[in-house]
């Protein structure tokens, strides 16, 4: 026990030193900018504000991105130029095509389902008694790590064949109670992909719900009321008043969930390890690059991921531009 406390003391010591050092560096940078000579002060101050972020991003993301693009045209160890071989490989291997298709299924279903569930729930609980508690219950999975979620859902999906002992997974127990055959949810392709998607939807719905709920509250009550007095029923009110009112939030929600979905890695890795035809690009990329040492193929997969996210980014940039113009 004493060793534990000593260890704790040491580590928090490191943390405090780190925090103080960081504060000192930022403080000095800003202090110097503040005291910069009048001439060109604006420039120095701009530099002080922007450069820490830009330097870190250049090192940690921009350079790696460029390097990845280069590596995707090289052989497995990254030392020989092989042209488009890796891309050819990708689109000719049936397993990799499965991976690409799976990823598309993920990115089609997760944002849609999470948003629909989140929105419906937000509307259902709006102004109801115990709204806060109901919100917390659905938002809770958002605070759980993917690894933790994997453990939770493995218990849910546990399988015992009929006649070979009691079910210990709730889902199969429910099926048995209703007189069905227990299923191997994580092994039976292609449905296993959907059971993994359920986990991601479970996590992301809370995120969608919290943001959309706040947006709904932001729709001016007067307008809703006016619509109601005009004789619009609940569905028409929703369609004509609420939905347009929360469009901006919907874009943010769908964008964020889509990007998170395309990058999903831990859930698949923790639950099936990408086996049984459940792998997705982010997982396959890691497997290729690091488990098999096929850096070239891994990088090519990364680039595909890149390309898949691109439309989402372009759409958002256009929305941002429009907003700027309005302002």
């Amino acid at each position: 026990m004493t060793a534990f406390w000593a260890d704790l003391f040491d580590k928090f010591g490191v943390m405090v030193v780190g925090l103080v050092a960081f504060a000192a560096v930022v403080g000095i940078v800003l202090f110097l900018a503040d005291r910069a000579p009048k001439k060109g002060r604006d420039f120095w101050q701009l530099l002080a504000f922007v450069s820490p972020a830009m330097i870190l991003l250049a090192i940690g993301l921009i350079y790696p991105a460029i390097r990845t693009i280069y590596l995707s045209f090289t052989n497995r160890s990254g030392r020989e130029w092989v042209g488009l071989t890796n891309y050819e490989w990708m689109f000719t291997q049936p397993e990799i095509i499965t991976v690409l298709v799976n990823t598309l299924i993920w990115v089609a279903l997760v944002p849609t389902l999470s948003t629909i569930f989140g929105l419906a729930y937000a509307i259902f609980i709006d102004k109801s008694h115990g709204e806060k508690i109901l919100k917390s219950l659905v938002f809770m999975p958002m605070a759980i790590s993917f690894v933790g979620a994997g453990i939770i859902w493995r218990f849910v999906y546990e399988y015992r064949e009929q006649g070979f002992g009691e079910q210990i997974g709730i889902l199969n127990q429910l099926i048995v109670w209703f007189g069905g055959e227990p299923q191997q949810f994580l092994q039976n392709s292609p449905w296993n992909t959907f059971f993994l998607i359920v986990v991601m939807v479970w996590i992301q719905t809370g995120f969608a719900m919290v943001l959309l709920s706040a947006a709904i509250k932001g729709v001016p009550v007067e307008i809703t009321e006016a619509a109601r007095l005009d004789g619009a029923n609940a569905w028409q009110q929703f369609l004509n008043v609420t939905l347009p009112g929360i469009r901006g939030t919907l874009v943010v929600v769908i964008t964020t969930i889509s990007i998170a979905t395309l990058k999903v890695f831990d859930i698949v890795r923790a639950m099936t390890g990408g086996q049984f035809g459940t792998s997705v690009v982010a997982n396959e990329m890691y497997t290729q690059a690091f488990n098999r040492g096929e850096i070239g193929q891994g990088s090519a997969l990364a680039l595909i991921l890149f390309v898949m996210v691109l439309p989402i980014v372009i759409y958002n940039v256009r929305v941002m531009r429009k907003q700027k113009e309005i302002r």
């Binding site: 399988y159 015992r160 064949e161 009929q162 070979f164 002992g165 191997q184 049984f276």
Partner: peptide, 11 residues
Amino acid sequence: GGFGGVSSIVS
């Protein structure tokens, strides 16, 4: 034994 049929091997 203890788990089920052939397919239970993988789980």
